[in-house]
Design a protein around this nucleic acid. Sequence first.
DNA 1: AATACTGGCAACCGCCAAGTA
DNA 2: TTACTTGGCGGTTGCCAGTAT
Length: 226
Amino acid sequence: MGRSPCCEKGHTNKGAWTREEDELLIAYIQAHGEGCWRSLPKAAGLLRCGKSCRLRWINYLRPDLKRGNFTDEEDELIVKLHSLLGNKWSIIAARLPGRTDNEIKNHWNTHIKRKLLSRGIDPLTHRQINEQAATRSIDRASSAAVLRQDAKTDNEFPYLNQNNPDGEKYPDLNLELQISPPSSHPPRKEETTDIKIICFCSSLGLQNSKGCTCGAVGIEHLRFYA
DNA sequence: AATACTGGCAACCGCCAAGTA
DNA sequence: TTACTTGGCGGTTGCCAGTAT
């Protein structure tokens, strides 16, 4: 039945990691690789919860981390992906080599969100705030015109200023969400209605890229089931 | 110089899906 | 099928450094 508990909470350190702890964790993972996080702390001589070790490694100690300031291109990509995915930080992070979900989440909350708001863009909906208020009465064409007039946005996030309404905001992206089941399990007819499939590699024009193994052209390997 | 305020970020918490016995 | 653990995720908190008063 099941497995034994994750960690002995009474005997673990908390708070900031010390240099010694970092060194122990790095040394252990370099010698044994990333494996069972549960048993790692004991094996590595750490008084930490396995979860804490995993987080420390993934967010801070991993050698392939980029660190440093986000570039404008990264900012732009984050906004694009966020407009498609919402707060799916891990998926967004997967498209930004060397960046972690936590890092991106923090960057979003401290920088990008504010930047969008200062441009009059709702970071939740990625629409012009005044446009939103008027959305009910303004047609899509005029909304696009509002976007076009925002020269600042043009400079900061050029993609936000495409002469396209909604899904056509990103001419370089395929924003079409297809609705269908996993290919290996053909759905019953009644199941297909609310099942969505999307390949973000393809959507971003990155099909056949390193991170995309689906091999699809314009179709989809990230799957969401309703 | 002292204090209050603010922003940035590392780390924790709680939940959930998947895996296992 | 059920009960349980693990790994992973997103939200939140708390500390610290920098800035303003």
